[in-house]
Amino acid sequence: MEHLISLFVRSIFVDNMIFAFFLGMCSYLAVSKNVKTALGLGVAVTFVLLVTVPVDYALQTYVLGPNALVEGVDLTFLAFILFIAVIAGIVQLVEMVVERFSPSLYAALGIFLPLIAVNCAIMGASLFMQQRVQMDPETSTQAIAGFGDAIAYALGSGIGWLLAIVGLAAIREKMAYTDVPKPLQGLGITFITVGLMAMAFMCFSGLNI
């Protein structure tokens, strides 16, 4: 239990997808102009992470890993293709399910869902999960040793991403009223803002969980 909690808290604040690993930057920069849409995308990313990471975890442990499917066979080289296929498939599936059962949520998330398939944060979470499976849970707070851990990690990463995008959107809404040098306007100042936010988040790296 302790391991679950520290994994969860750590993946929100310390191993933050945006501030520590810069994953999902493309949509992060493009969709952070106002808080409401940012929140929508954040929720959608969290949701897709929650589904894809455990599925990819199952694939990694029961199919791809060394000696998982057939004794003596290591299929890890197929990981990239399978993971991206799972992500693309699940995004498609989630889109259809949401459309069928909750049209209002679909209307809110609609345009963001297809974008998520090429969001680096989703693929990144699966690849980090693949790395962390090899770690020893006794020595490492980052290790993922079961479905519980995989879900906690996915949820934590998603919430971390959500926090980051909502935070940036709020700052950018306020920044509209400031006098920024002309060549720096728009993209340039956004990068620098994200850099400063990342520095603030670095304080969490000293947390002893």
């Binding site: 750590r10 310390v14 770690m135 020893d136 006794e138 020595t139 707070t141 980052q142 290790a143 002893n208």
Partner: peptide
Amino acid sequence: VVGRGLWGGL
């Protein structure tokens, strides 16, 4: 030798 650091294995 092996051990554990702040975040992971050493």
